[in-house]
């Protein structure tokens, strides 16, 4: 019975995936991709990885979908996608990809016994950190370096997006996100929803220390709310030269690094936390990171500067 449900789920996912590839219109593909993201979020729930499910729901259904749909909007008047090449090539590539998939499937079908796991090791040291959500512990203690570098990736990604601005526009505002046709409905939503979203975003961050949730999920929700406001034309994207904005971007990673380096003096070294103070420190870092993430994601979606800076 339960496997039947999983089978249905897999079928749905594969349908959405195939449609994502085969849809003739690129916007149809994006919609299918959003559907896929929602389905995957359910899969993660089914795999009991609630933190990941939250992330996938926020990113797959929200942020990525928005980025792609906005791209469609701007590509729409210009050019068609170009169709897939001829059938013979499709068959050849299909066979090739099937072989790749079969290789991977063979790996999946012969799992090691017993399945390896770091869960016991994670559990053994949870006490030392004092947080109850193991995923957060992994992200901010055991593998804090990855998390830190990932934030640097985000900052670099933002710089990369900004770098695409024409010289003339450097420092100016990104292109407006507002919908082509003003809609009272949208305005209404953008007036009512964001405060609630802000609250939920903060909740996800705060709650993430002990329960599923966390920095990125919360940050994404915050970013989504900001973007909603921008789309409803209740606020323009900010000028990219504004130093205050940039400091918001930098504050999270900077605080993270500062805390890490402070570990040299106050604890066992880089990115280790003084015993007993781990939780407040981690939460402080998470809050700052969430803020930075929200700003970064918002700005990344908004894109490079597209207007001359105000005088």
């Amino acid at each position: 019975m339960s496997l039947a449900v999983d089978l249905v789920m897999v079928l749905l996912i594969l349908t959405a995936a195939v449609w994502t590839i085969l849809a003739r219109d690129r916007r149809d593909a994006v919609i299918a991709f959003i559907v896929l993201g929602l389905l995957l979020s359910l899969v993660w729930m089914r795999l009991l990885a609630v933190d990941v499910a939250l992330t996938e729901a926020a990113v797959g259904g929200g942020a990525t979908g928005l980025v792609l749909l906005r791209a469609c909007a701007r590509l729409l008047p210009v050019e068609a996608d170009g169709a897939l090449p001829g059938l013979r090539l499709q068959v050849a590539v299909g066979v090739l990809c099937a072989v790749v998939g079969a290789c991977l499937a063979a790996v999946i079908l012969s799992p090691p016994e017993p399945a390896p796991s770091l869960a016991p090791a994670v559990a053994a040291h949870m006490e030392d950190v004092g947080l109850k959500n193991p995923v957060t512990v992994v992200l901010l203690a055991y593998r804090a370096l990855d998390t830190l570098l990932e934030k640097v990736v985000l900052v670099l990604g933002l710089i990369g997006v900004w770098a695409l601005a024409p010289d003339l526009f450097w420092g100016g505002r990104p292109a407006s996100l507002r919908a082509a046709v003003p809609s009272g409905t949208l305005t209404f939503l953008a007036r009512v929803l964001p405060p609630i979203g802000v609250l939920i975003g903060i909740y996800l961050v705060w709650n993430g220390a002990d329960h599923p949730g966390g920095t990125f999920q919360g940050g994404t929700v915050l970013a989504a709310m900001w973007l909603l406001v921008m789309m409803a034309d209740l606020g323009d994207p900010p000028e990219t030269r504004a130093l205050r904005l940039r400091r918001l971007v930098a504050v999270g990673p900077a605080l993270f690094i500062a805390v890490g380096l402070a570990g040299f003096g106050m604890a066992d070294g880089f990115l280790s936390y003084p015993p007993g103070y781990a939780k407040p420190i981690i939460v402080a870092v998470e809050v700052a990171l969430a803020l930075s993430i929200a700003v970064i994601l918002g700005l990344m979606v908004a894109g490079p500067a597209a207007k001359e800076p105000d005088q």
């Binding site: 046709v181 809609s183 409905t185 949208l186 939503l189």
Partner: peptide, 16 residues
């Protein structure tokens, strides 16, 4: 309640 709000607005947006 959130779904109500979302549904009410999303349906209008799609309709428009």
């Amino acid at each position: 309640a959130l779904v109500q709000l979302g549904g009410a607005t999303a349906s209008q947006l799609i309709a428009e």
